[in-house]
Design a binder for these strands. Structure first.
Lengths: 147, 147
DNA sequence: TATACTTATTGTAACAATTACAAACTAAGA
DNA sequence: TCTTAGTTTGTAATTGTTACAATAAGTATA
């Protein structure tokens, strides 16, 4: 699982002309295999032994590169530092009120809602669902025509 | 509208033994009447003329007080500083998988999801729904007992 | 392989948001 | 009014993040 993701991610990078350096490889790998949502500092510390001379700046630089390539999502919870999450295929549904069409859309980072809900209600959270309703482009266009 | 919210908020504070100082009054009022989601600095600047000697620390202190009293929500978007939002009555449901109990919980700030979804899919968004599932404290306790 | 060119990494300094702290002050009840 | 605990203020300290310049390392070409 990790390997597939990693390979895909490296391909994505390569295809956008980003060099694959050992540091980048390691940072990506760490984020992918990490089940939590590591902070930049978590990543830095985790790779310290492997890359004793790596700079914090490198971690930040590359997190930005990954973010811009759409590989990684930056999550900001209440606490002081950002967390980073490899973007996988979790997705929600966008539903057309008029024709019922369903479109997937991806949006990571609602973990915070689960967190807050758990905190506020004392529940042990297992999952959540979300749907967004509206009018699809086609129906929108027809509506204006008829009118 | 603003007045009702403000009065309620002040009552809430009073009932939890928090003193109503002119600064607190002004900060609360500003957040409530503000349609945007001001940062601490926005608030500080907005009240500068009214309270020339107010410290930034006071703004932060009181935002924490309000947050802890459940009056205000701290929103962290990507940008560097937190934004603060008066909590009104939008709410979601937390549902117990075991006994079906439903608990309301409040969580403003999912407008961004609607925004993003609209942007990604071209839909005209009208609404969204979200539910969170898990185990309520009572059921959690019973589960451990049985075991 | 050698060379040149471009991009990445490092280390450090700078920055900006937030918090800690101690001293001065003040709201609110007796 | 008096008292006292809670608040405000100003400033220093902290922390996450970024900017920058020098050094290093990939990559393409011959």
């Amino acid at each position: 699982m990790t390997e597939v993701h990693l390979r895909d991610a490296l391909d994505t990078l390569k295809s956008t002309g980003v060099r694959i350096t050992p540091q980048r490889h390691a940072i990506l790998e760490f984020i992918i295999q990490s089940m939590s949502h590591p902070t930049a500092d978590d990543i830095y510390k985790a790779l310290e032994s492997k890359f004793p001379s790596m700079s914090v700046a490198t971690v930040y630089n590359n997190l930005r590169v990954f973010r811009e390539a759409g590989l990684v999502k930056e999550l900001t919870f209440g606490d002081s530092s950002s967390r980073f999450d490899f973007i996988t295929n979790d997705h929600y549904h966008m539903i057309c009120n008029s024709c019922g069409k369903i479109v997937d859309f991806h949006y990571p980072g609602l973990d915070e809602v689960e967190h807050l809900a758990s905190h506020l209600t004392g529940f042990e959270v297992s999952s959540h669902r979300m749907e967004i309703y509206g009018t699809c482009p086609t129906c929108k266009e027809q509506a204006t025509k008829v009118q």
